[in-house]
């Protein structure tokens, strides 16, 4: 339950909304329990419901940036990422995560924090495996770029 909440907070950027969404996820899970095939991955199933619930509310709550915008962001970023600081404050890394477009952020969270397999993520996000891989690749690259910008702001790697 806690990891659902923490993922929801990072996807929504708001603790109160995250709590509502997780609560709704469990209610939804209860309602659709009959459709849950025993033997399938219960954890992935709950995350899928969470993602669907967030998706359902997103238009009402936010005008989240679309992936089309993120392509522009990618074009603006350097091709080669510079050094990343060794010690990063938690708040800094969370800020970098929050700066990622929502679709990339979801993929990175599910893979690198919740440690789902790419195949499970494809099921959770209801997108093809190739889409998961490209979102991950772009999301991770953007995250590294954000962190290396942080390094530059600390004066690390200048002139390198």
């Amino acid at each position: 339950m806690h990891e659902l909440y923490r993922t929801a907070v990072r996807l929504l950027g708001d603790g109160a909304k995250a709590e509502d969404v997780v609560q709704e996820t469990y209610l939804q899970a209860w309602k659709s329990f009959a459709r849950f095939a025993p033997g399938t991955n219960c954890r992935a199933w709950l995350f899928k419901i969470l993602v669907n619930t967030i998706h359902h509310h997103r238009r009402n709550w936010f005008n989240l940036r679309r992936v089309a915008d993120s392509d522009e962001i990618l074009e603006r970023t350097a091709v080669c990422t510079g050094p990343v600081p060794e010690r990063i404050a938690r708040a800094e890394i969370l800020r970098a995560l929050t700066s990622l477009p929502a679709d990339y952020r979801a993929a990175v969270l599910l893979a690198d924090v919740d440690e789902f397999s790419y195949k499970e993520i494809a099921g959770i996000l209801n997108v093809p495996l190739g889409t998961v891989m490209s979102r991950l690749s772009r999301g991770r690259k953007l995250l590294r770029e954000q962190l290396s910008e942080l390094a530059r702001s600390y004066g690390i790697g200048e002139g390198a």
């Binding site: 806690h2 990072r10 990343v84 060794e86 995560l97 990175v108 924090v113 590294r144 962190l147």
Partner: peptide
């Protein structure tokens, strides 16, 4: 290292 730090940061989110 980035991955570990990201995990630590997200998992430290208070419930």
């Amino acid at each position: 290292r980035i991955r570990t730090q990201l995990q630590d940061a997200v998992r430290a989110t208070p419930v």
